[in-house]
Structure formats: C-alpha cells, structure tokens
Design a protein around this nucleic acid. Structure first.
Length: 274
DNA sequence: ATGGTTGCTTGGCAA
C-alpha cells in the first residue's frame, strides 16, 4: 500500500498585508513550498470579498476566514480538513485577530491558533497611547489564556504576527530599539511570561541559536531594506511541548521580501514529522 | 535628523 503523506505537516504563517492585492504572491508561495496549512494575518478584506474560490483553486479548499473592511483579518487555509473552533474575544472586542481550528491529519487532530496581536502605535506608554494599552492588555490575556491550558494534552500550534521581538537577536539593535514599541521591556516580559505559562516552545529558536540575528519584518520606509537590514522578528511559531520533538525544520522566507509589491512581513514555514 | 512607505475606508488612519 502506498504510504500516505500523513506523517508530515508543513505550516506557513504570513502577515500578507492585503490578501486581495497579494493573491499572486500567495499562489507563488503555495506552489513553491506546498504547505499543508497557511495562516494569514492582515488580510484586510471583508469576508464576502475574501478570494476564497481562487485560493481553493490552487489547492486550499478548507478555509476559516475572519475579516473586516480595511483592517485586521485572519484566515486559516488548508489542504487538510478543518474543524473550526470558537475563537476568544480578546479585550472585549470583536476584531478579527484570532482564527482557530483543529487540523485533521492521519486520524488525529492538531489545534491551530492564528493570532494577530495589536501593533500598539508609536508611543510606548499606556497612559498616553491607548493602542499601546490595548496591546499590553492583549498580551496579558495571552498569558492568562496560556495558563488556562497549561499542560493540556492536545497538540497545539500558535502562530501569527505577535508584534513582539522578544530577544536581543530578534532586532537589528537591542540598544536602539529598547524604547521602540515591539521590543520594550513591558512587551518582552509579557511575551516571556506567556511562553512559560503553558509552556510554549519557540519553533524557530529551537533550530537557530539566540546569538544569530533573525528577522521576519522590514519596514517599507527604508530606502534599501536589504542593505540596511534593520529588521525585527515579529512573526512566530509556538508549539506545545509534545510537538517539540517532532519539529523537523523551519524556514524564514526572506526572498519574498524582494518579490514585486512585497508585504513588509515574510512567511515563516515550519515542518513537523508527526 | 523625528523623516520615511504602503494599503485601505479616497483621505486620514493604521501599520
């Protein structure tokens, strides 16, 4: 009997910054790497305008889409069947920052959470900047949420644009970004507490030492993003402990930042041998 | 030096 592909799961997370504008890039990514599951953030499309048929046509018929007009929006696209789960209402808002489903593979299920954490504005002070306050509250809720499912047996993967670069090696200059939203001690401490709460394993740092610089985002504002290389690692793949031994490889798809009309984030790909 | 670019909701936000 022919061996099925049940043993391998390849998952990509990508802040696509408009799914309609970058549909050709999504198709190219799917063709190049053939992931089983693609988690998107910042789709920026109402659900009725989400290009679901086109995406099904290039291989992802199972879809869970959350979206609003113009901002936020997340989606889980899959070659494998999905069993939608109820997303949490973070910070008492309904804002399309969370999509969650069981991915059914080889007779078992893996719980996938796709999250888009608020960026938090420019001023790193919750008193002066309500967007930063919202971000800190969101991260506090992620700690509680992780704690609530501590040592749960369900194999779980959390991915998304978490908008925090937790390690000095996750930013181009730890010193110069210490007071910049995404790398402040307030955010980093919360991120660490969230990681310890379930606990989660950082799938990318599982393979790449902390001393090595790693980025998934480069600002549109740089004259030459590649030459200046002032990036940050904002996009993450976290796995529950039982999945850590099954991690096979990770890849940050830096090359997509050079594609025509790129997103400012690049996809992160993780492969597990189940 | 407090700029710069992009994408959406066409004009002012959000990132």
């Amino acid at each position: 009997m022919k061996k099925s592909s049940d043993g391998r799961l390849r998952l990509v997370t990508w802040n696509i910054n408009s799914v309609r504008l970058r549909l050709p890039q999504l198709k190219k990514l799917a063709a190049a790497h053939s992931p089983d599951v693609i988690c998107l953030q910042e789709t920026k499309a109402e659900e009725r305008y989400f290009p679901g048929e086109a995406i099904a046509d290039f291989g992802y018929p199972h879809q869970l889409v959350r979206g609003y007009k113009g901002y936020n929006g997340v989606a889980i696209l899959s070659r494998l069947p999905l069993q939608p789960l109820e997303e949490r209402h973070w910070c008492r808002k309904i804002d399309a920052r969370h999509a969650t489903a069981n991915v059914l593979i080889g007779g078992s299920a893996i719980e996938v959470h796709n999250l888009y954490v608020p960026a938090g504005g420019d001023i790193p002070d919750p008193e002066e900047n309500e967007k930063f306050a919202h971000k800190l509250n969101f991260l506090d809720e992620m700690i509680e949420w992780s704690r609530a499912q501590a040592r749960k047996k369900t194999p779980t993967i959390v991915v998304g644009d978490l908008n925090v670069a937790p390690l000095p090696g996750d930013v181009w200059s730890h010193q110069q970004l210490i007071k910049v939203v995404s790398h402040t001690p307030e955010e980093v401490t919360r991120f660490e507490n969230m990681m310890h709460a379930r606990p989660w394993v950082d799938a990318v740092r599982h393979f790449v030492p902390e001393s090595e610089k790693l980025y998934t985002w480069w600002s549109y504002r740089a004259q030459d993003w590649e030459a200046s290389d002032r990036g940050r690692r904002l996009d993450h793949v976290l796995v529950s402990e039982s999945l850590a031994p099954k991690l096979y490889s990770v890849q940050i798809m830096r090359e997509t930042r050079s594609w025509p009309q790129p997103s400012d984030h690049v996809p992160v790909c993780v492969t597990l041998n189940l």
